[in-house]
Computed example of a mutant assay.
Amino acid sequence: MITRNKTPSKYVYYALHLYFSGLSLRRASERPSQLFKRNHVSIWNWIQKYKPQKMQSRRRKVLEYIVDETMLKVGSEYIWLWVAIEPKNRQILTLSISKERNMFVAERFIGGLVKFNGKHPVSTDGGTWYPMACKFLGLKHHNHSPYEKSIIERTMQYIKDRTESFDDYFPCRVKNCKLSHVRNWLNMFLDYHNSEIKLVK
């Protein structure tokens, strides 16, 4: 939840909703101006303070893990974003970032999924780091079907569109950054995205 903020939480969530719907920070601050007046810096601060609900407070029914990774730019460096979704409800199961892409990172990422959701088949794009990671974890592995490829690619593009906006407005200038602000942002994105899917259904 939002802490140390005098603005009513319903207004905070409304502003965040506007932002994650694709508006810039300035536009997200202008739209609700008839209800309350806050500038784009206030919304940025809400993003930093936001603590997403524990989406994994209980196990969800999972048919399989559709996993993929993509490169993102944070400031002057590039990082890897790892994403896992569930094909039936299309919710994002988890997001993770790393500065390297290899079998050990893939194993750690998928292992986190298994620890909470149990063992299920893993679908990937055929990256060479996935089969061995799945073998070590005792999981069945296969390449994406056309349907699986379609939904994971749409999800990845949706995330990339949002993260590009984030880096344009607030590029990281910290040397040897620990990327905690990126993790906080992605956690809020995951919370919002999954909540929206539930509402649609």
Rank of each mutant, 00 (worst) to 15 (best):
25 L>M: 08
25 L>R: 10
25 L>V: 04
26 R>Y: 06
26 R>N: 05
29 S>I: 04
31 R>M: 14
33 S>V: 03
35 L>P: 02
36 F>G: 07
36 F>D: 03
36 F>T: 06
37 K>R: 07
38 R>Q: 02
38 R>N: 03
38 R>G: 01
38 R>W: 00
40 H>Y: 12
41 V>Q: 13
42 S>V: 02
42 S>D: 04
43 I>T: 02
44 W>Y: 15
47 I>Y: 00
47 I>S: 00
49 K>I: 02
49 K>G: 06
49 K>Q: 06
51 K>V: 05
53 Q>S: 08
54 K>P: 06
55 M>R: 13
55 M>H: 12
56 Q>Y: 14
56 Q>E: 14
57 S>T: 12
57 S>H: 11
58 R>K: 13
59 R>A: 15
61 K>Q: 13
61 K>N: 12
62 V>C: 12
62 V>F: 13
63 L>P: 05
65 Y>L: 07
65 Y>P: 09
66 I>L: 12
66 I>S: 09
67 V>R: 06
67 V>W: 08
68 D>T: 15
71 M>E: 10
72 L>C: 10
73 K>H: 07
74 V>T: 08
75 G>H: 04
76 S>Y: 13
80 W>G: 08
80 W>C: 10
81 L>Y: 02
82 W>Q: 05
83 V>G: 12
84 A>R: 02
86 E>C: 09
87 P>F: 09
88 K>Q: 14
89 N>R: 13
90 R>L: 14
90 R>Y: 07
93 L>F: 05
93 L>Q: 01
94 T>Y: 10
96 S>H: 04
96 S>M: 04
96 S>F: 01
96 S>I: 00
97 I>T: 03
97 I>W: 00
98 S>F: 00
98 S>W: 01
99 K>L: 03
102 N>P: 01
108 R>Y: 05
108 R>M: 06
110 I>R: 00
111 G>S: 01
111 G>R: 01
115 K>I: 08
117 N>W: 15
117 N>S: 15
118 G>K: 10
119 K>I: 14
120 H>Q: 13
120 H>D: 04
122 V>D: 07
122 V>W: 05
123 S>A: 12
125 D>H: 10
126 G>C: 04
129 W>N: 10
130 Y>L: 03
130 Y>M: 03
130 Y>F: 11
131 P>S: 09
131 P>I: 07
132 M>L: 15
132 M>H: 13
133 A>R: 01
133 A>Y: 01
134 C>A: 04
134 C>G: 09
136 F>Q: 07
137 L>M: 03
140 K>T: 14
140 K>E: 15
140 K>I: 11
141 H>M: 14
142 H>S: 12
142 H>E: 09
143 N>I: 15
144 H>Y: 11
144 H>W: 08
144 H>K: 03
145 S>T: 14
145 S>N: 02
146 P>N: 06
146 P>W: 04
147 Y>D: 04
147 Y>C: 00
148 E>N: 04
148 E>I: 01
149 K>H: 12
149 K>E: 11
150 S>K: 12
151 I>A: 09
151 I>N: 11
